[in-house]
Amino acid sequence: MWRPSFERCRRPVFRSPILALLATITAVSVGLVASGCESGNGSGEPNELNGMTRTPPNEVGRLRLPQVNPESDNRAGALAGRSGGVMLVYFGFTSCPDVCPTTLADLRLALEELDEEDRSRVRVAMITVDPERDSAEVLNEYLGHFFPARDFSSLRTTDRERLRATEKVFGASHRIGPPDSEGDYDVSHTAQLYAVDDEGTVVVEWPFATEPSAMASDLAQLLGQAPEDDET
């Protein structure tokens, strides 16, 4: 069944009635009704994730995008966690005044809730959907505001088809608006954060405005479940 579902009755707490309403609309639109919550994912597996999961999950591990971090020389980087780790993938742009910085600032708070060992296994990857304005330098500086340099990947391609193809696999998209008289333009975009495990499977997606504690709790659980993790 291709039916994303919240796997848990306790959903992310939203900041406002509007967001809650949007979330509800989204939830309903993906076929989730309250009654579905009680049956969980139907597989009988214990699942305590706050975010959205899909059945079957998206597989993104074959994707590669140029990594434009200072030391990475545009090498193609895989969209997958390192062994035993998780990569958190976000499609966004740095001229985004509201949604993107909110998400990344919330994510930073979430990562701060993790213990150091868990945190060391999380890498944040932002794929710019606005490569025209987001040069490597701009993107690196932007992410550097939120995360230590060793913890993020700046991913940027000017090949629109490649970007679209990447988005497609995640179920993401963006739209560049028409430029105004000064050449500025708006960008609309899907605003989920995708958690990808070391096999390239999208294991959970957090919609915009998911509380940091909800993300942290999911991450702790995912990292605890990682097969390479001998500690749990």
């Binding site: 193809a165 988005e167 179920g171 998209s173 975009h189």
Partner: peptide, 27 residues
């Protein structure tokens, strides 16, 4: 249909066929 994506450069209506996870946020 990935080719549909090019339609999204303009006009939000083309998004209507992509719902669910496709919550596009704009301003």
């Amino acid at each position: 249909d990935s080719d549909d994506m090019s339609d999204m450069e303009m006009g939000s209506d083309s998004m209507s066929e992509m719902d669910g996870q496709m919550k596009m946020m704009g301003m």
